[in-house]
Design a protein around this nucleic acid. Structure first.
Lengths: 230, 230
DNA sequence: CCTACCGATCGGTAGG
DNA sequence: CCTACCGATCGGTAGG
């Protein structure tokens, strides 16, 4: 910061500029998607001209992949910390739900970009990275629960840990507002209140215990074949 | 079809062309998203030039909204039919899961386009239409289950019908392949086999009964406050 | 890291 | 429903 010495300035700032670009790219790409964000927008957000980006990254995709790589590494660290915590499985799952980026930086959009906007090599790398950094730590929590007999066995109607992790992740997706009723022309109303803590508890509670009433277990709600029909 | 009379030809074909355009728009927009599909691609798929589209629709957004309106109307009809069927709640939910477009025509992408690519009036209209056509019929099934005492009461830890419908819908989202392991560079591997019927049963079974073992109900899996910690 | 600029493609219009 | 064309914007390059 204070070190503004002539000879070292360039070599220091190059790393700092790179981080600035990555930060701006993270904010814009996660908020609006790969295609909707132009390289000029990213450059503007950094106080640079657009061609300057190409000194730090080969092209737009290279910048996107570098940004996502860092994001996935950060997620990996946080999720591993939670998974390794031990103890209450439900509480760890709630911490996962709280930890995952949900509000603005749309995970669904991230998958869209990975699968539809990038080349095959980048897609493959990010798939693998997503699995190792996000899916695996969450699956480890479910494996833990299975080992302690807290979860249903996969061979008896339960879900295997990886499938369970995918189910949890899919439940984090925000869908359009349930309750805009007659409020009129509010611009970006997406699940307005729905008290964040209530949402966390709801997701994990349904994932673990389901919506069915306990006494209705072998009833017409049918978890097997489905014999009774209207 | 056989009626190729001079005077009526134009007035007949105008409706047919419109339907052709809507069909091509549906396929392309749902597969690749609003922004990734150009008006020229749509015109090409119909054997038209791009400016010809503007005879049938005011602009690109108008075409997209018209297409989604028809899609939501079709979903409404199908879901209402299932919801009204009566009888086994689990079986009706499985039929919903089977009925909803899941594989290619990404629902998550649809929400992205509605929320981020369209103007506020179009967004508002489609939000309302989605709620009435998709959310409401599914919520009606849950209301039915509540009335018959098959589901937990919302005031006692259960989810209200609309929230339950949103949870079901979010679980339909496909996430990147769980199991590409060391298969290498397969291009679009998204949940390769995972036997479609197995996926349907898994989603509804978890939504109704959860992942927890029945005997572990009041155990450390914690559905309330979470007293026991590691 | 800048200025200047490229070819391609976009949504949309003019005019018939 | 076509040809011809518009201004804007895109990702990326040249050259310093």
């Amino acid at each position: 910061m204070a070190r503004r010495q002539r000879g070292h300035q360039a070599v220091e700032d190059v790393g700092e500029t790179r981080r600035t670009i990555l930060r701006a790219a993270h904010e814009l790409f996660m908020a609006h998607g790969y295609r909707a964000v132009s390289t000029r927008q990213i450059a503007d957000a950094c106080g640079l001209t657009q061609p300057a980006l190409y000194h730090h990254f080969a092209d737009k995709q290279d910048l996107y992949v570098a940004m996502l790589r860092e994001e996935l590494d950060a997620l990996h660290a946080g999720l591993e910390r939670i998974a390794r915590r031990g103890g209450d499985v439900g509480e760890r799952l709630r911490q996962v739900v709280r930890y995952m980026p949900a509000e603005r930086q749309d995970m669904g959009q991230m998958f869209h970009d990975i699968d539809r906007e990038l080349g095959p090599e980048a897609r493959h790398e990010l798939h693998e990275s997503f699995h190792g950094s996000v899916v695996a730590p969450i699956a480890a929590i479910f494996t833990d629960g299975l080992r302690h007999g807290l979860l249903r066995d996969p061979r008896q109607g339960g879900a295997d840990p990886v499938a369970a992790a995918f189910l949890l992740l899919s439940m984090l997706r925000h869908l359009p507002a349930p309750d805009f009723g007659d409020a009129g022309q509010d611009p970006v109303s997406v699940a307005p209140s729905a008290s964040a803590t209530g949402r966390v508890d709801l997701i994990v509670d349904v994932l673990l215990h389901g919506l069915a009433a306990p006494e209705a277990r072998d009833d017409g709600t049918g978890s097997d074949g489905g014999a009774s029909s209207g």
